[in-house]
Design a protein around this nucleic acid. Sequence first.
DNA 1: ATTTCATTTCGTAATTTTGCGAAATATAAA
DNA 2: TTTATATTTCGCAAAATTACGAAATGAAAT
Lengths: 99, 99
Amino acid sequence: MVVKPKFTAQQEHIARICKALSHPARVYIMEKLSSMDGCCTSGEMIGDIPIARSTLSQHLKELKFAGLIQGEIDPPMIKYCVNKQNWEIAKLLLNGFLK
Amino acid sequence: MVVKPKFTAQQEHIARICKALSHPARVYIMEKLSSMDGCCTSGEMIGDIPIARSTLSQHLKELKFAGLIQGEIDPPMIKYCVNKQNWEIAKLLLNGFLK
DNA sequence: ATTTCATTTCGTAATTTTGCGAAATATAAA
DNA sequence: TTTATATTTCGCAAAATTACGAAATGAAAT
């Protein structure tokens, strides 16, 4: 009987990271947050890109879900920052893949 | 009147590359082809991964469409190879982004 | 208690992605 | 010419993505 190997955990992980970065809005968000070093609210982002607030919110949620960013509440705003630990891991993985 | 800037061409380009790499089968394909240096047929790939032949074919098509690979006919097989020129560009772009 | 503000969640629609098996294609071998 | 081989295309279905505006949330200011 022929066995079908699964994808490796690394292949899955790389794909997950790339998926998180597979929309220009999310590329923009990561660029913006990286450049800020500090953090940034969605209100500061919305003026830069051609999508509705609710759509931006969805993209932020996806990046948060992927672990690449995190949001801390600072009423009435939410400050988003890069999740440095996970972003480092992501960069290492991708750099390895691109090597 | 408030103008909504577009995404930059670079953001679009990075997103397109990431999208091409956003599925573990496609990550596997790029790894395999890179490691082969030479080329590789879909028949040599199908045994490594848990998807049907027709599905693999679709993933190959997407990577071809994204410009990351190319296929040359060598009947009755098709030899797929990395498109080195575009892959270099992709790597440069991603490396810049990950910097 | 009401209003204001920044943001998210909800409801919905259109489109894209992923997957499979069956059928089609194209070439080489018998 | 029939058969075998490698691969793709087709037809379809299920699920995910992207998008928007309207409504909801939660905290602060009035």
